[in-house]
Design a protein around this nucleic acid. Sequence first.
DNA 1: TGATATTATTTCAATATTGAACGATTGTAA
DNA 2: TTACAATCGTTCAATATTGAAATAATATCA
Lengths: 148, 148
Amino acid sequence: MPTHYQGSPREIQALDTFIKLTRATDSLLSRLAHRNTHPGLTTSQFGVLEALYHLGPLCQSVLGEKLLKSGGNITMVIDNLEKSGLVQRVRSTEDRRFITVSLTEKGRELIERIFPGHVQAITEEMSCLSSDEQQELGKLCRKLGKGG
Amino acid sequence: MPTHYQGSPREIQALDTFIKLTRATDSLLSRLAHRNTHPGLTTSQFGVLEALYHLGPLCQSVLGEKLLKSGGNITMVIDNLEKSGLVQRVRSTEDRRFITVSLTEKGRELIERIFPGHVQAITEEMSCLSSDEQQELGKLCRKLGKGG
DNA sequence: TGATATTATTTCAATATTGAACGATTGTAA
DNA sequence: TTACAATCGTTCAATATTGAAATAATATCA
């Protein structure tokens, strides 16, 4: 999307880079979504299962931090995963404010089964970049992600 | 988020790069959202106004392509912008399937007023990367966005 | 011309997402 | 200890988002 914005060269470059970044990410996520790499799960649900799979049981607030989502959102996504029998809630006995969310057997079995296909799809979609380019992209994103 | 995934080196690198990319973008967008650079507008609404401002009047399907959103979504976002009096719908007379969406005076005045602040916020958030780094990031994103 | 396919938009159900308000619980400090 | 502050999760209203089904209009082709 061209912008024609009359700003300083620094602003124009920042805006141009920002647009390329967000469009590339949107486009990549959209292509991945259409591969149906996690059938029967929404992207958010898949993200929660993946986090619990790799990090172990987590309370909802930590889950929200990891996934960069609000508390209200986590409550709803966990609700739906719980209805599907993929995760379980256990209220902590030491501090009764916390609820620990963990995978059920069904949830673990599911994420273990579909995760390899997910990785393969990502690998294919990233294959337009060489190994060196991926390395460089990762480095720049790491720097940008931490913020100014 | 560490993954501990036992895949080929190629898969591990792709997954690592993918995670860094999506987290950097999420984090950047989240930081921008908290700057309240488009008060009273959602991010989607701002995106529509911005597109119409830079590209001129567009029909809804083209708007959906530009913004990478579904038709149903565009209908709702335009509905809300129309209620706010920021855009107007006009059904095409040549081909009555099309609806042209354009900015109202109020909409144009608004986007003209808030766009500079939006650009400034982006410039500040991107300032952790040098000009050369932004150039490089843009190039890599451009390549990735087009897909494998 | 008439049947069929394509395209643009709307509608709907389900889920996501946020921010604010709220209740429950725990920590803190006078 | 008692008031106050902070934290965790839920609820709610509004909007977003998708995909599928439905409608309307146009294009194509036999």
